Simulated assay, not measured.
Amino acid sequence: MHPWYLTTLVALSVLTFYRYALVWSGLAVLSYATYQTASYHENLYLTALEYSLVFGWLIYEYKKQKNLKKEAFPALLS
């Protein structure tokens, strides 16, 4: 995915506590490795690395937010 496709998501991320879109936009530059050869062969290892890191960060942030809500409102989530 090219970084400019993520601009709307990055802009909207300032309205939430989640920052995975910023991580994703930073890792999107790995997609340019496709253009190293004339045949535009996509390196699926780089793609897997990119999406693994993005989903890992998203899961980390989700769990962190869930724990913060649990600490702030323990009676509501019991």
Rank of each mutant, 00 (worst) to 15 (best):
Q65T: 07
E61C: 09
T8D: 11
Y35P: 00
A75P: 01
L76F: 13
K63H: 04
K69F: 06
S31H: 15
S39C: 04
Y35M: 07
L15M: 12
K63D: 01
N67K: 15
Y45H: 10
T7P: 00
W4Y: 14
A48P: 00
N43L: 11
A21L: 03
R19S: 04
E50F: 15
T8L: 15
L27A: 13
F17H: 08
S39P: 06
Y40I: 11
T16P: 05
S39V: 12
P3Y: 14
S78K: 15
W24F: 11
T34R: 15
S13D: 05
Y51T: 01
A38K: 09
Y62G: 01
L22G: 06
R19L: 06
I59Y: 11
S25D: 03
Y51K: 09
S39L: 14
Y60M: 06
S52E: 00
T37H: 10
S13I: 04
F55G: 00
K69P: 00
L22A: 07
Y18S: 07
Y20V: 09
L6N: 01
W24G: 01
W57R: 04
L53M: 08
S78G: 08
N67T: 01
L77S: 02
V10P: 01
A75W: 12
L76P: 05
L68Y: 10
A21R: 04
A48I: 05
T47F: 15
S52L: 06
E42K: 14
K66V: 02
A72F: 08
V23K: 04
A72E: 12
A33N: 05
G56R: 05
L68T: 08
Q36S: 03
P74N: 04
V10A: 06
A33V: 09
L77V: 08
L44F: 10
E61S: 03
L77G: 07
S25Q: 15
T47L: 12
H2K: 15
V29S: 10
H41C: 12
A75M: 13
I59A: 14
L27V: 07
A33T: 08
Y51D: 00
L77N: 07
Y32C: 05
